Every structure is written in C-alpha cells, then in structure tokens.
Amino acid sequence: MSADPAVPAPLTGDEHAELLFLRAENALLRTERDILVKAAGWFAADAGVLDRHTEPEPR
C-alpha cells in the first residue's frame, strides 16, 4: 500500500486482467443494449405505437 492514501496502489496482474475483462464485457453489454433498444423500437413501430421513422434514443 502506498504511503499517500490519495494515490491508489498499482494493480496486480490478476486485477489488471479482471479490469480488461470487465471493460470488454461492459462494451459488449452496451452494444447488446443498443441492439435491443432498436429492436424494441421496430416492434413498437410495427404495432403502431411509434412512427416507423423514429428510432428510440439509446440510454
């Protein structure tokens, strides 16, 4: 642990690997969410709830 509490300790190899994995997983989940938002918009437009030319905004 570092002497200054404001400076975090460097990551271990396992922590760095986990961080890379979580960042990749986060990117995948965001992509999947964007696809599902578009699909929900298409289904809503098909059901007549939304205008077909209006895409829902991603969150």
Rank of each mutant, 00 (worst) to 15 (best):
F21N: 11
A44V: 05
A9R: 13
F43L: 15
E55L: 07
W42M: 09
V37K: 02
K38N: 06
A45R: 01
H53G: 07
A17P: 03
M1F: 03
A17C: 13
L50M: 09
L20S: 11
A6P: 04
E18S: 04
D4Q: 07
E15C: 00
A47E: 10
V37N: 07
L50E: 07
V7S: 13
P56W: 02
T31S: 14
E18R: 13
D34V: 09
L22W: 02
R59E: 11
N26T: 11
L20Q: 08
D46N: 11
V7W: 10
W42V: 00
H53E: 13
L50G: 08
P10W: 04
A27Q: 14
A6K: 05
T12W: 00
A24I: 09
D4S: 11
R23A: 05
R30S: 05
G41P: 05
E15D: 14
R52K: 15
A39N: 02
K38V: 07
L28F: 08
D34L: 07
P10A: 12
E15A: 15
P5L: 03
E32P: 03
D14K: 10
E25Y: 09
E55Q: 08
D46G: 03
A45Y: 02
V7Y: 01
A6D: 14
G13M: 09
E57G: 01
L29S: 01
R30M: 04
V49F: 09
